[in-house]
Design a protein around this nucleic acid. Structure first.
Lengths: 213, 213, 213, 213
DNA sequence: TATGAATGAGTGTTCATTCAT
DNA sequence: AATGAATGAACACTCATTCAT
């Protein structure tokens, strides 16, 4: 009996996981409204009924996907251990990390875009997001204080504004690359273009934050 | 007789205009996929049939809305006459303008987001967008050259990268304000917050572009 | 004044004629239900409103087209002057004529098919069709009598049945040529195929009607 | 347990079957274009969504109906076992059968008419139709050879042409009975009329094919 | 736990017809 | 006589969700 139940449980978890992964892909690809529950079920190789069984409805499923995405990025950020590095290196590491994370998790930005189109109505209901995000702000705030105290950062820089800017210059480049290609005629995704953008962004942030030597 | 013809003409043009305006609102509010043709017709006080008569279908209507939006911003940019100002003032004017434009035309960023979700498939079909966008890049490129020649700008700054960054730091702040409010607990849209953001962005760009005096 | 009215009148007749011709093409191509009033107006280079002005509505327009088609074939049949020919030659002329008429007026069979799908509801309302059709039956009936009296036709052949058969063997071949091509893999419309069919049909009718010499 | 599964299975099959039957009726009555998917669903006592679930779309549903119709007639023809009968009897059986089939399956001819209006675009996509039709041609061809060898049929008669004619003289009579009633003022469907037509057709074919004794 | 059949409200789109000039 | 704008009903098709097993 016991092993059977374990198996069942494991299967259940696996099904749930497959659904979540499939939903992430589908929501990222088509937005919340454009995503199809059928497609998610197909991709997850699960019965559609299972989605409703495990997640309630499409909105709740989206919320689960979004929460997982936020937890993932916030967790990764916490692992940076910026306080072990000299301020400027820590800042550069943060910029690189943010850029790389967006590049390696392209679903993240589309999910966030879709959620903003819906005025964050799913995220609002989440209990965990705010707390883990605050930790991140604190982390960057601590870094800024330390850098200022060390005389390498300009004093008085707002952590939230800086966070927004670091995110913005990477996020916008990636999310708007399709219209950008039409308007500016440039391929945003070649290795050279990506490297050039990271350099430009690094420069932007360093000049904003660091004092000249 | 003449006024009659004028009225007639005006009615057709007026209807077309009302449809376009209603479509802009609806598409901006719900994205391309989430927008409802019925809703557009209602809002435009027009018969749904008229939409298809004047614009073909939903895709073509979206394309028309998007084109008009791009033409509008690019036209406004051309009116800035940056070449009549000293380089630094011109740069600051460009940053302010971009920020103000997004604030006063909140539909623009949602339309562009939606279009990027669809990989710019509507914009690609447009004939005019690329040309007018190139003029804008040239304008900024000329400014950068002039500023460098005058010894007030750092030389070698890429016009496209700068454009992207100027847009990014305003655009991202506004489009992601809903998830931002949840994660950072901050109201992005109070007058004080808006003013603070503009100041931060101005600082970011000036430090990036200008040489220290 | 007078010439102007004449011009107007002529234009009116011309417009009516163009509408009728366009309607014939459109109805023949797509059937009554599949035909589009817009398409008819476009093809006739007339305003849609004119169709309603001259013909009332789509049903009445179809009726007008159908009547004209029947009048045309019946008129052509009357011109055959079968009574001027020896019976067998007259019979062969009738078979040839029917075949040629269908070939040269492919709209006719599609219009008739469509009308039969609608259980002849338009034709029923027509006042003239029955009368002119009766004349045709009489013509064939007279021929059969004459041929029998001359000892070259079998006596007792029913004129209506013969008419139906003469029509059937040509009409069916042409109207069902598309499914026929799929089922029998044969191209029905090459010159050779058409000639072979006419020969086969002629043989069929002659063997049915004529006595062996 | 077993019966439950059977029931389940039967329900799906039954629904599919009801949809197919309802579609056949509706398409035959109104043609492809005039048929209403809603009406089919109502008549099948099925949800409209089921039609799309099982058959894809209206075109594919029509194709399914058409294929089934062709398979039905071709199957019935194969069961005639003409090779077990003397040639003339076999020929007469074929003529009778064709006539009876059209009479008992009036939908068949309307479906075929509609398909020809659309230039056989559905039938073209079918994989099975051509093969089973070829078998039928072969069957008639064999009969003609046998009859000629036995000295009761005229030699050199083309099987396809004969098939077309046998079909034509029955099919045309039935499909054009509505316009025929208006033009010839005759009721095509009384038992006497039907019997007379069969006799006339039999006579036509026998005189065409058989040698005089 | 899992499944496939079923549903009703809604999608974008099309149509014959009428209105206003 | 002629036009082009306007309409409402209907159309094929889709969707998230629930039912029955």
């Amino acid at each position: 009996m016991a092993p059977r139940e374990v198996t069942k449980q494991r299967d259940a978890e696996a099904t749930k996981g497959r659904i979540l992964a499939a939903a992430k892909t589908e929501f990222a690809r088509n937005g919340f409204g454009g995503a199809r529950v059928d497609e998610i079920a197909d991709r997850a190789k699960a019965n559609k009924r299972m989605i409703y069984h495990y997640f309630g409805n499409k909105d709740d499923l989206f919320q689960a996907v979004l929460e997982a995405a936020y937890v993932d990025i916030r967790t990764a950020e916490q692992k940076l251990e910026l306080d072990h590095l000299p301020p400027r290196e820590a800042l550069e590491k943060l910029v690189s990390f943010t850029w790389d994370y967006y590049l390696r998790n392209p679903e993240f930005i589309t999910l966030v875009n879709s959620e903003n189109l819906h005025k964050a109505r799913h995220l609002k209901k989440s209990k965990v997001i705010e707390a883990i995000s605050q930790k991140f702000v604190t982390m960057v705030g601590d870094l800024l204080k330390r850098g200022a105290a060390d005389g390498v950062f300009r004093p008085g820089i707002d952590a939230v504004q800086l966070n927004i800017t670091i995110a913005a210059i990477g996020y916008y480049y990636l999310t708007n690359r399709f219209t950008g290609k039409v308007t500016f005629g440039m391929d945003y995704m070649t290795p050279e273009a990506l490297e050039a953008r990271l350099r430009f962004n690094m420069d932007t942030i360093v000049r904003l934050v660091c004092l000249p030597d």
